[in-house]
Design a protein around this nucleic acid. Structure first.
Length: 578
RNA sequence: AGGGGUGUCGUCAAGCGGCAAGACACAGGCUUUUGAUGCCUGCAUUCGUAGGUUCGAAUCCUACCGCCCCUGCCA
């Protein structure tokens, strides 16, 4: 480890958080090599290049953290560039949501906001240059014919009959394509490379197609649009990008990426490096599947708290820091893998445990009456807001003769390991008193409706005068001052680790976890919870982390609505399910 | 005539010829007015398999096996 640190160039040590706990990933190692070789003036400039055709998800977060992180580590820059070369799928709504999500995650592109469409004119000029150099030609083959001529994975393709058109004719035809003289799909501009290449991407790839669609930025100025392979690398070059980080499926495109850069007089020679995209267990990540869930009404929009979209995670209560930490921990490599959601859950708990104030809320209320407590009396008890952070201060909570406690905290016939409330047993009400269950009221079906208890006035605050111990501490809410609320309990959207795999035949929508959303309407909150501001995570003691739903109208008379981000770890529950 | 990748603990992931980091998960224990948090302990004699080179191999060589990606005028 000592030796390793010595190998890091002086200038990069500062600001590099490879000071011991985290190590360089393979991309950082490759960038180090490029820096040592003095490539691109020893600059590091990356970019995050989303196509504005959908919402960002946690897989994008991995890429965002990687690209912006690399720029920070190497003291370079990271651009935000929208890859908007296909107007038939892209919309402004998406560019806005993408910007909001990147900002929310905590990254700042500092004005370096670009669009591939900004370069349409330059890209067109590059294409003309290729034609002049005899490296591109206009092809009249239909889409079907093009496919047929391309050959198969095992057989070489055949040259297009239009491959040997003269430069003059190609120039004329390409200009007329732009001028709108030809129908959509009737002609394309193709790079002249090698129809026998083992790599399909090199079999004279299409670089411009005719497409009459309204573009969100250029309007109807163009009826021809560049393809990804042509536009992406050249946009990188135009922006002075040094390292173009993308996912594994583009590995096969790298020779083409390099080919365009080599053929044209570009200002910079970026290097494409691929890494494995993120797969998370118990969820789906593909845009197609997410879109289906949204369109089929299987979830409540793109920001449904069960979705791995950044807007969904935000609504669910995941903090930006927890997502960044998660992305840090999963690492970056080239092997396909599936990360356990438990790691994401761990990351939120870790962050929220640190920052969330504690409150008491009863989700499934069971009435509890303290028979020896003065009728009509209400007193204020002190409660700390955060047991590990004195600076968080304390608050008063009202206590009264009638309370609500959690249904799960009482069992008439308790198993040996259950040490919460049961007839005859004494437990502590957090920050309040020791109470003992004396008897229970039941309804006609035998369901317990009210717990009658006695309390020890000497135990005010939660500790007894004689020092006797009690095994359990329960959370509670005073009935007279309880705030009614709706609480939504979220769980993993799918019941299988890899719902996206189609190996078992079934559609992923059949694997939806029917218990992924449970809505509780008669929850009782301590008064202070009515004041929690939007976007602020809190802990309901002994239950989990919650956040006010961000779609609820502020003045709703129905009372607050909270979303459960994640439960607290629960060894008792765990031991029960075994 | 195919091309490109990749195989290290249940899940991620370091490792780059000198004797298998770390995290999550899991299992125990201590502390605790949250069965939370925190703390401690355990958890790969072995690196897809088989050969070879070497004093020494997860690291080098050879062969085999598995898995992923590629035949959009999508990105």
């Amino acid at each position: 480890m000592q030796d390793k640190e010595k190998n890091i160039p002086e200038g990069n040590l500062e600001g590099c958080d490879c000071s011991g706990e985290s190590r360089v990933n393979f991309i950082q190692a490759q960038i180090d090599d490029d820096l040592k070789a003095g490539k691109n003036e020893a600059r590091v400039h990356t970019r995050f290049p989303p196509e504005p055709n959908g919402y960002l998800h946690i897989g994008h977060a991995k890429s965002i953290c990687l690209n912006f992180g690399l720029a920070e580590i190497f003291k370079g820059f990271c651009n935000l560039r929208f890859d908007d070369t296909n107007p038939s799928k892209e919309e402004v709504e998406y560019v806005e949501s993408i910007k909001e999500d990147v900002r929310w995650l905590g990254f700042d592109w500092d004005g370096r906001e670009f669009f591939a469409s900004d370069y349409f004119e330059k890209l067109y000029a590059y294409a003309v240059q290729l034609i002049k150099d005899g490296k591109a030609y206009v092809c009249d083959l239909s889409p079907e014919a093009t496919r047929e001529y391309r050959g198969t994975l095992k057989e070489a393709g055949r040259n297009s009959p239009y491959r040997e058109r003269s430069v003059a004719e190609n120039l004329d035809l390409f200009a007329r394509m732009r001028a709108g003289e030809f129908a959509d799909g009737s002609r394309v501009l193709r790079a002249k490379i090698d129809m026998a290449a083992g790599n399909m991407n090199m079999r004279d790839p299409v670089i411009y197609r005719i497409l009459r669609a309204h573009h969100h930025r250029t309007g109807d100025a163009w009826c021809i649009y560049p393809m990804y392979d042509f536009a992406h690398g050249l946009s990188d070059a135009i922006e002075g990008i040094t390292h173009s980080i993308c996912t594994l499926e583009f590995e096969d495109h790298r020779p083409l990426y390099d080919w365009f850069i080599e053929q044209l007089p570009v200002p910079c020679r970026p290097r494409q490096i691929e890494f494995a995209r993120l797969n998370l267990s118990y969820t789906v990540m593909s845009k197609r599947k997410l879109l289906k869930l949204v369109n089929d009404g299987l979830v409540d929009g793109w920001d449904d708290p069960r979705l791995p979209t950044l807007s969904g995670l935000r609504r669910r209560g995941f903090s930006p820091a927890s997502i960044r930490n998660f992305c840090e921990r999963i690492g970056v490599a080239k092997r396909n893998s599936m990360v356990d959601v438990a790691l994401l859950e761990h990351a939120v708990r870790e962050d929220l445990n640190r920052i969330a104030s504690r409150y008491m809320a009863v989700l499934q209320p069971l009435k509890l009456i303290i028979d020896n407590y003065p009728e009509g009396q209400v007193e204020e008890l002190d409660a700390v807001n955060h047991p590990e952070d004195p600076a968080a201060g304390s608050r008063k909570i009202p206590f009264a003769r009638e309370l609500y406690v959690e249904r799960d905290d009482f069992m008439e016939e308790a198993p040996k390991k259950f040490y919460r409330l049961t007839p005859g047993r004494e437990v502590r009400l957090r920050y309040a008193y020791y109470i003992r269950c004396e008897w229970v009221e039941k309804d006609a079906e035998g369901k317990v409706t009210v717990l009658h208890c006695s309390y020890d006035p000497q135990s005010r605050g939660g500790s007894s005068a004689d020092g006797r111990k009690v095994k359990a501490t329960l959370h509670w809410v005073a009935a007279p001052t309880a705030v009614n609320a709706e609480v939504r309990l979220y769980d993993r959207l799918f019941s299988e680790p890899d719902p996206g795999s189609e190996k078992d035949g079934g559609s992923f929508t059949e694997k939806i976890n029917s218990g992924s959303l449970v809505v509780l309407k008669d929850c009782k909150l301590e008064p202070a919870l009515a004041e929690v501001e939007a976007g602020v995570s809190v802990q309901f003691e002994r239950l989990g982390y919650f956040i006010p739903d961000n779609r609820q109208r502020p003045l709703s008379s129905a009372g607050p609505v909270f979303n459960r981000t994640v439960t607290l770890r629960d060894d008792w529950l765990k031991s029960q399910s075994k």
